[in-house]
Amino acid sequence: MNPFSYERAADAAAAIGLAKGNAAARYLGGGTNLVDLMRETVERPEMLVDVTGLPHGIEPRADGGLLIGASATNTALAADSHVRTHYPLLARAILAGASAQIRNMATVGGNILQRTRCRYFYDTAAACNKREPGAGCDARDGFNRYHAILGASPACVATHPSDMCVALAALDATVHLDGPDGPRSIALADLHRLPGDRPDIETELKPGELIAAVEIPPLPFARRSTYRKVRDRASYAFALVSVAAALDLAEDGTVRDVRLALGGVAHKPWRASAAEAALKGRPANPESFRAAAEVELAAATGLRDNGFKIELAKRTIVAVLGDLTGDEA
């Protein structure tokens, strides 16, 4: 681990002030990803600004939505009664991630900004355009079981590992940022980037910006929602494919509205907008679900080890929507 200085910020303004103009400064949340990457020398910050003292409240909004301080822990968010009642897909997504210990440490802001678990990104002996732009990508023709089937580029086939973000993407969450140029907001779905030719630039954050809060708009039908994670062991493993879904059925059994997002398939949490559009107004049955999944995965391409994820994603979409249809909660 490189030497660094450590500062604890009392509030967002202080944190931004400390990091301002210092490209080698990083905001430190729970540290569950950053400390790991520092130990691997993938991350080499010269200054850590501890932002765990920033707001961590989880507050229902008058409109029925929810405002979440970025320093709320993953556990706190999953355990929040409003989340459990109104956004069960979010609680389940968080709880499907990592271990209880890590969820106790990890913050909402840190979870959003965690980096890929691609082993070639972690191994400084391997070629990785994300770690070292222009170096090449050893994953493309290497072990790529966990890699992207959607939105990948020749430069990078890594996936975003978060479970929580998949649910947030489905919920149309907004991320409130703060930074040297003042506060601004961005849709979570727009925060993470596809790799293109600059996989090293992973988000739309500007230098010195931090995540202050996440806001989830009201979505009454999200009471009927869930998250399913498919992985290589029964717990404590990253997703091969995951599906977050909320379903709103009309009286006649057709889909009035639906939210669908995929994890483990792309460089960002993948909002399945095409599938959603294909489903609206259609009968809520396996044939419609499958057709929508086909639309969403039409552009998917497999690599040496991960081609199965295309069919797995389709099947999991169908299964999750089927569960939501059958469950008259």
Binding site: R119, R233, A234, S235
Partner: peptide
């Protein structure tokens, strides 16, 4: 490549 316990999957309790 998977020189870690996160990527080499020994069975967990579950």
């Amino acid at each position: 490549v998977n020189a870690s316990l996160a990527d080499y999957h020994v069975p967990v309790q579950m």
